[in-house]
Amino acid sequence: MIRILAVVALAIGAAATAPAIASAQESSQTAVANFIGKDGKETGRATLTAAGKGVLIEMEVTDLPKNTWVAFHVHEVGSCDPAGGYESAGKHFAGEDANAEHGFLAQKGPHAGDMPNQYVGADGTLRAQVFNSFVSLDDKGTAIRGRALMIHARSDDNRSQPAGDAGDRLACAIIK
């Protein structure tokens, strides 16, 4: 009788830890990034999900210029200091190829952190789903967890060095 209770206790213990393990695995496959506007206030959020060959970024960001295209990039440093115009986030994330140039149209491009321009609607809100196949959440060399997402004031021309003539940095989010 004692032996049967021990087996049942082990089975109950294993079942109780299964959700914890699944939750830990799920959390390592996702990340969040809260956007901060130039005034230092939160303006939106991105959810990042690891995929087999890249990262899916789903986001909604408010208080942006209405009816316009804006550049969207991953920057090197996970720092979003609005007082310095978000220069604390550093340059665009190059990824494993330190010699890569900025832009999809550059001969030696793109940087791993280069992503397509995004459209902001009439309400000043950007809603997007972007898949970046050049990055990962946590794999060495391509990891973006701990780096910053950045929205710029203008669209990226996909060839000007070093940043596509994308203009001011409007909103920044640290990937956690």
Rank of each mutant, 00 (worst) to 15 (best):
M150H: 07
A98G: 08
T30M: 13
E96N: 09
G124C: 07
R169W: 05
I4A: 14
A22R: 14
G52R: 03
A171W: 01
A166W: 04
A122E: 13
G124V: 04
G164T: 05
G85D: 08
C80E: 04
H152W: 06
D63N: 15
A20V: 15
A100T: 00
A100S: 08
G95N: 00
G52P: 08
G44S: 08
V120E: 08
A128V: 05
A89W: 01
G103L: 02
G40K: 01
H152Y: 12
E96F: 00
R3Q: 13
M59D: 07
C80P: 10
G84K: 02
V7C: 12
F72L: 06
D63V: 01
F104Y: 03
M115H: 06
V55C: 04
A15P: 05
I21E: 06
G13V: 10
S79R: 01
G113D: 05
H102E: 04
G44V: 03
A51Q: 15
L48T: 06
G90A: 08
P162I: 00
R154N: 15
N99E: 03
D165L: 02
N34G: 10
Q25F: 07
V74P: 14
D114G: 09
G164S: 02
V7L: 11
A18K: 12
L56K: 13
F93N: 00
E101G: 10
S133A: 14
G90T: 08
L105A: 14
A98I: 00
I151R: 04
L5E: 14
L170S: 08
R127M: 11
F35S: 12
V8E: 13
L170R: 04
E58M: 03
G78L: 00
H75F: 07
A6P: 04
A148T: 12
